[in-house]
Design a protein around this nucleic acid. Sequence first.
DNA 1: CCGCATCCATTTGGATACTG
DNA 2: CAGTATCCAAATGGATGCGG
Lengths: 124, 124
Amino acid sequence: MHTCPEAMGHCKKINEVLARVGDRWSVLVIFSLRNGKRRFNELKRELNISQRMLSLTLRDLERDGLISRHYHPTIPPKVEYDLTDLGQSLRGPVKVMTEWALANHEAIDTARAAFDEQAAEAAA
Amino acid sequence: MHTCPEAMGHCKKINEVLARVGDRWSVLVIFSLRNGKRRFNELKRELNISQRMLSLTLRDLERDGLISRHYHPTIPPKVEYDLTDLGQSLRGPVKVMTEWALANHEAIDTARAAFDEQAAEAAA
DNA sequence: CCGCATCCATTTGGATACTG
DNA sequence: CAGTATCCAAATGGATGCGG
């Protein structure tokens, strides 16, 4: 049966996790840390994200145990972010998703353009 | 080198795609259609989503070519949604992500609780 | 049954200014 | 350099009522 109750129960948990790591920036930060630690402004430049959103995203990822934050009290200060073991375990899924994104980016654009043209015709 | 320019250029495209399928509901709808076509209210009940959001999500997924919509002009009306080939190609990545979500749901909760407790101590 | 339109509360996110 | 705080605009999302 396609409505097996376990899948239904899973849905809620999956939803919760996706609401956490499925926001606009989290996956991209994980992606940027795939090859090792990065500094705050390195991430900012690479992702073209506002200071505010990077700050919030990093805090949430740290809170969820996905990244670690290491503060060096030098002058000027230096803060490095890195993936935790839990964060490392997300690299696989993220890699799969990003590869799909790259492979199908244009297919989506094409479908979208076709849909919009259909809608425009219907309106005429 | 971890700052290879291709990865930087990729970032933007990945971001665009994730902004599309990475919203709160899209992945769950894909997940719900993994075993074949479903009707509007079936999805609504299964996902515990508001009518409005399901409607919007289905429309966007159709626009992006990920699902198909088949309308039966019966009385009462009947509308079935199904994955397109492009949507089918997302099943793999979505499966990987949902399995990670299920496997690490509790680890995230634990990390979050620990972080919040630390913050509470620091405040005291 | 399916789904759009409207209203309204909540959330998100950019811009700017300021601190250690 | 690495943030936090504030203000404000825009997007998101639920509730309700209506129409095919």
